[in-house]
Deep mutational scan, measured.
Amino acid sequence: NQASVVANQLIPINTALTLAMMRSEVVTPVGIPAEDIPRLVSMQVNRAVPLGTTLMPDMVKGYA
């Protein structure tokens, strides 16, 4: 099963992502692949992401 990127904390809108904000977890539906975590660092979210939410490509500016 593919691990996805999950929010490790509440991430406010327009926040630049850091490693501490993300974790890898096997979830359904599948979100951004966990191997993309290094690429996500310093990218901004375009909405508030609650703790435990799977990051989807449309939630991260410049990812999709």
Rank of each mutant, 00 (worst) to 15 (best):
N1P: 14
N1C: 12
N1W: 10
N1R: 02
N1Y: 12
Q2M: 12
Q2I: 10
A3W: 06
A3S: 12
A3K: 06
A3N: 09
S4R: 02
S4V: 02
V5K: 00
V5Y: 01
V5S: 03
V5T: 09
V6H: 02
V6I: 12
V6T: 12
V6N: 02
V6Q: 05
A7C: 03
A7S: 09
A7T: 11
A7Q: 01
A7I: 06
N8V: 12
N8F: 13
N8M: 10
Q9N: 10
Q9F: 12
Q9K: 09
Q9R: 13
L10S: 11
L10H: 09
L10Q: 11
L10V: 09
L10E: 13
I11Y: 01
I11W: 01
I11K: 01
P12Y: 12
I13A: 12
I13C: 05
N14P: 00
N14L: 11
N14A: 06
L17T: 00
L17Q: 01
T18D: 04
T18Q: 14
T18L: 06
T18M: 11
T18I: 07
A20Q: 11
A20P: 06
A20N: 09
A20L: 13
M21C: 03
M21N: 05
M21R: 04
M21H: 04
M21S: 10
M22E: 01
M22V: 10
M22P: 00
R23H: 04
R23C: 04
S24C: 03
S24G: 12
S24F: 09
E25D: 15
E25M: 07
E25I: 05
V26Y: 11
V26N: 10
V26R: 03
V26L: 07
V27C: 04
V27W: 02
T28R: 02
T28F: 05
T28E: 15
T28N: 09
T28Y: 08
P29T: 06
P29A: 05
P29K: 06
P29E: 14
V30N: 15
G31S: 02
G31A: 03
G31W: 02
G31F: 01
G31D: 01
I32K: 00
P33D: 08
P33K: 07
P33R: 10
P33L: 07
P33N: 11
A34K: 04
A34D: 15
A34R: 03
A34H: 14
E35Y: 06
E35M: 04
E35D: 09
E35R: 03
E35L: 09
E35Q: 07
D36F: 09
D36P: 01
D36C: 07
I37Q: 09
P38R: 05
P38C: 08
R39I: 13
R39F: 11
L40A: 01
L40F: 02
L40S: 00
V41C: 05
S42P: 03
S42D: 09
S42N: 07
M43D: 03
M43L: 11
Q44W: 13
Q44S: 13
Q44P: 06
Q44N: 15
Q44T: 13
V45S: 10
V45F: 01
V45H: 00
N46G: 08
N46K: 13
N46W: 13
R47W: 07
R47Y: 14
R47E: 07
A48D: 09
A48K: 06
V49H: 02
V49F: 02
V49Y: 02
L51Y: 10
L51C: 06
L51W: 14
G52K: 07
T53F: 13
T53E: 07
T54I: 12
T54P: 06
T54K: 05
T54N: 02
T54F: 02
T54C: 04
T54R: 04
T54L: 08
L55D: 01
L55S: 01
L55P: 01
M56E: 07
M56W: 06
M56R: 10
M56A: 11
P57V: 08
P57H: 09
P57T: 12
P57S: 12
D58K: 05
D58G: 08
D58F: 13
M59E: 03
M59I: 07
M59P: 01
M59Q: 08
V60M: 07
V60C: 02
V60K: 01
V60G: 00
V60L: 07
K61W: 10
K61P: 07
G62N: 11
G62D: 07
G62F: 15
Y63F: 14
Y63K: 02
Y63H: 03
Y63N: 04
Y63S: 03
A64V: 15
A64M: 10
A64H: 14
A64S: 15
